[in-house]
Design a binder for these strands. Structure first.
Lengths: 159, 159
DNA sequence: AAACCTTTCATACTAAAGTACCGGTTTGGC
DNA sequence: GCCAAACCGGTACTTTAGTATGAAAGGTTT
């Protein structure tokens, strides 16, 4: 996991700090100019003191400050075998955009019905059954009823 | 999870920093003014500078310290769909007394293979495949490949 | 109203599946 | 060695499946 905070503090922070120091120096210089209260030696001295004690502060802190604790939550996947409960994959089913008759054909196909069986069951002519099944195959991109059954089961669109 | 620290450092941090610097500048100016009049107190001035920058250094360091990562493992339940615990009904399979080739045919039938597909796969002639499948149908007491597939799945003799 | 999809049915045809019967080889058990 | 079963392959035939194309009725959407 990327720690944005570290990146921020690791590089930009230091740059920012340096810049602020530079600005401070210039600000002091400007103030010095403006108020003509001049004591260059003192400014340099104070600046060195500042830098030194800043570094000292950092060093002291790194030696004494307790390390921060960041909690990283890791999800461990526990697999639970769910017995039997079959659910139709509605997403996959909608993708195919089958008509109701076509889906009906598919269900009966999977039951092992022949074309004439289906016709007799749904009171349709053999021609009609063939037409529906042919269209079904086109939509499912298969070439035979057995392929249709295999694919339908794989996609979980029939039980 | 929202990291308040990032928000703080992201925008308010800079403002705070600026404010601190402004205060510092004015403080220095004030001190400079004061101790130019009260000359002997240079040590106090430098001391204050030292203290201030030490604190600043500590503060910077605490911001820079790399957080120690504590890993917390949380269990997440994942439901895996049926296939995990499918077992072939050996009893039903033995009842049919299929030969190894016949059973092989059945498995490929269920995959949606055509007779010629099977032939090419197993390096058998179409005639041989037909013979095996025909014998398979007789043993299974079915009349078509789709019926064979349906029955085989019902009896749980194929996956 | 026109365009589109679904459903129904038809004919004609090709491709594949399935049956029946045949011959031959191999393999494992008695 | 013999027998039964499995295995491999073939021919011939019937049946079923699948494709192509068209047509008509009904519903929905634009």
């Amino acid at each position: 996991m990327i720690n944005f905070k570290n990146i921020f503090l690791g590089s930009k922070h230091i740059i920012l700090y340096g810049l602020l120091m530079a600005i401070l120096v210039f600000a002091l210089k400007w103030l010095q100019w403006k108020f003509l209260i001049v004591d260059n030696a003192l400014e340099i001295y104070v600046g060195l003191i500042a830098v030194f004690f800043t570094i000292l502060g950092v060093w002291v802190a790194t030696q004494l400050v307790k390390p921060k604790i960041q909690t990283l939550i890791v999800e461990k996947e526990v697999y639970i075998t769910q017995s039997g409960e079959f659910t139709i994959d509605e997403t996959e089913l909608k993708k195919l955009s089958l008509s109701s008759r076509e889906y009906e054909m598919l269900q009966l196909l999977a039951k092992g019905y022949s074309n004439s069986d289906i016709g007799e069951n749904l009171f349709l002519s053999l021609s009609t059954v063939k037409t529906h099944i042919s269209n079904l195959f086109t939509k499912m991109e298969v070439k035979s009823r057995t392929q249709a059954i295999a694919k339908a089961k794989r996609l979980k669109i029939i039980r």
